[in-house]
C-alpha cells in the first residue's frame, strides 16, 4: 500500500566509452544481475531499466542508455543524450588507449548535454575489467578527475560484479544533490549563486579505488 504514496523519479543515465570496454556488460549486470561473455556489439543505442527503492519515500526508475562505442563519431549522440541527468564513462583497464578516450567522451558529453541552470552533467568514471587488470589503473586518473570536476571513479568488474552497484548509487546521489540544488535555486536564486560555488568544491574528491 505504502508504495502508492512513494515519490517516483525517472533518471536517464548515459553509459558511454570506447568500443569494447564493457558498457553493455556493466548495464546488464546492473539491471539484470547477469553476465555473459557473448554480448553483441551495440549498434546505435540500447537501454535497460532498473528500479531502485531509494528510501521510504522515493522510488527511482533508472534508464540506462547504452551508447555504441563508435557513436561519438556519428551524429546521433545528441538525440540519445537528450534529457540525460548523469553519465558514466567507461574505459578498459587492459587497453590504456581507452582511458585517453575518456577525455574525448567527456568533452562530447559536456558539449552536448546541459542541465538547467548551466550546471555541468554529473559524471563518474568506471575503470572496467578490474578482474583482469585491477593493478593497471592509470596514475593520471586522480588528476584528470580533479581537473574536470569529476567526484568519483571506480574500478569495476561486470564479470565479478565488483563496484557496479556502488558506482551507480554514487551517480544517483549526485543527481539527487543536483536536483536539490536546482530546487534551491528556483526558490532563492540569490542564495544559490554562493551555495553552488561552495557546494561543488566541498563535495569533491570522493575518489575511491575499488
Amino acid at each position: 500500500m505504502s508504495d502508492l504514496f512513494k515519490k517516483e523519479l525517472l533518471f536517464k543515465i548515459l553509459v558511454v566509452g570506447d568500443f569494447g570496454v564493457g558498457k553493455t556488460s556493466i548495464i546488464k549486470r546492473y539491471a539484470e544481475g547477469t553476465f555473459s561473455p557473448k554480448y553483441k556489439m551495440t549498434i546505435g543505442a540500447d537501454f535497460a531499466l532498473k528500479q531502485l527503492d531509494w528510501d521510504s519515500e522515493t522510488r527511482i526508475n533508472i534508464q540506462l542508455w547504452d551508447i555504441a562505442g563508435h557513436e561519438r563519431f556519428g551524429y546521433l549522440t545528441s538525440v540519445y543524450y537528450r534529457y540525460a541527468v548523469a553519465a558514466a564513462i567507461v574505459f578498459d583497464l587492459t587497453r590504456p588507449d581507452t582511458f585517453f578516450a575518456v577525455a574525448k567522451w567527456l568533452a562530447d558529453l559536456r558539449d552536448k548535454v546541459s542541465l538547467p541552470v548551466g550546471r555541468p552533467l554529473p559524471v563518474i568514471i568506471l575503470a572496467n575489467k578490474g578482474d583482469v587488470a585491477a593493478n593497471k589503473v592509470p596514475p593520471q586518473i586522480e588528476e584528470f578527475c580533479k581537473k574536470n570536476h569529476i567526484t568519483s571513479w571506480y574500478v569495476t568488474s561486470a564479470k565479478e560484479n565488483r563496484n557496479i552497484d556502488e558506482a551507480m548509487n554514487r551517480v544517483v546521489v549526485e543527481v539527487l544533490e543536483n536536483q536539490r540544488n536546482n530546487n534551491l535555486y528556483n526558490s532563492d536564486s540569490v542564495m544559490l549563486a554562493e551555495e553552488m560555488h561552495t557546494d561543488k568544491h566541498n563535495n569533491g574528491q570522493l575518489c575511491c579505488s575499488r
Binding site: 568500443f19 569494447g20 557473448k38 554480448y39 553483441k40 556489439m41
Partner: peptide
C-alpha cells in the same frame, strides 16, 4: 585494432 575487437564478438552465438 578495431576490426580485431569486432571480429571477436561478431555473431558469436
Amino acid at each position: 585494432h578495431r576490426i580485431e575487437k569486432d571480429v571477436q564478438r561478431c555473431d558469436r552465438n
